Simulated scan of single mutants.
Amino acid sequence: MTTDLGPGDYPLSVNRQDLLRTPTGKPLSALTMDAVVAGEITAEDLRIAPETLQLQATLAESVHRRQLAQNLRRAAELTAVPDAEVLAMYNALRPRASSRDQLITIAENLESKYHAPVCGALVREAAEVYERRDLLAREEDR
């Protein structure tokens, strides 16, 4: 994957279409109405590929949008996590929804099972912040 992207490459779908592929490996140019009608395009082809999100992160960094780049890197990692688990994590991250141990378990699962260290670090940070701000689940909240 190239890291030589800059503001002139945005939007990738116009200026660097050669870099974009579906999660199944099809080039972006293969996503046509004729291909849909012929049954050559599946729902998986319409999802965003983690590589595309990483490219978008590189573009964001090139214009000094570091927070956006981090968000895109987390999104790239989350493409490997089943939707139901993403929703469960989202609910677990609500204030007072989880204990510190539960959040650390989520972080460890992200890091080990899904190879998502950026997401894992965010959940660990949330556990620390929730603890400092008294936002962890209490016994009476469970």
Score class of each variant (00 low, 15 high):
residue 78 L to H: 02
residue 69 A to Y: 09
residue 107 A to M: 04
residue 112 S to T: 15
residue 116 A to F: 13
residue 50 P to C: 09
residue 59 L to P: 00
residue 87 L to G: 00
residue 50 P to D: 13
residue 83 D to M: 10
residue 67 Q to H: 07
residue 120 G to K: 02
residue 81 V to S: 00
residue 45 D to W: 11
residue 48 I to R: 03
residue 70 Q to S: 08
residue 65 R to K: 13
residue 99 S to P: 01
residue 112 S to Q: 15
residue 54 Q to V: 13
residue 60 A to H: 08
residue 41 I to L: 05
residue 53 L to R: 01
residue 56 Q to M: 15
residue 85 E to Q: 06
residue 112 S to H: 14
residue 124 R to N: 05
residue 48 I to H: 08
residue 40 E to G: 08
residue 83 D to C: 05
residue 87 L to P: 00
residue 76 A to N: 02
residue 80 A to V: 07
residue 40 E to K: 12
residue 68 L to S: 06
residue 103 L to K: 01
residue 50 P to A: 10
residue 101 D to Y: 07
residue 124 R to P: 02
residue 97 A to W: 01
residue 121 A to D: 14
residue 113 K to L: 11
residue 102 Q to S: 05
residue 54 Q to R: 10
residue 57 A to D: 05
residue 59 L to M: 03
residue 76 A to P: 00
residue 85 E to K: 02
residue 65 R to A: 15
residue 112 S to E: 15
residue 63 V to Y: 06
residue 66 R to A: 14
residue 112 S to C: 07
residue 65 R to S: 14
residue 121 A to E: 15
residue 106 I to R: 04
residue 117 P to W: 14
residue 40 E to V: 09
residue 106 I to C: 04
residue 108 E to K: 04
residue 44 E to P: 00
residue 45 D to S: 04
residue 65 R to T: 06
residue 98 S to D: 06
residue 47 R to M: 15
residue 102 Q to H: 04
residue 56 Q to A: 15
residue 85 E to N: 00
residue 102 Q to I: 03
residue 41 I to H: 03
residue 101 D to L: 08
residue 125 E to L: 09
residue 55 L to C: 01
residue 68 L to E: 10
residue 62 S to D: 03
residue 71 N to E: 13
residue 103 L to M: 07
residue 86 V to A: 11
residue 81 V to G: 00
residue 74 R to Y: 12
residue 52 T to L: 13
residue 68 L to T: 06
residue 80 A to E: 10
residue 108 E to F: 07
residue 123 V to K: 02
residue 50 P to F: 14
residue 96 R to S: 01
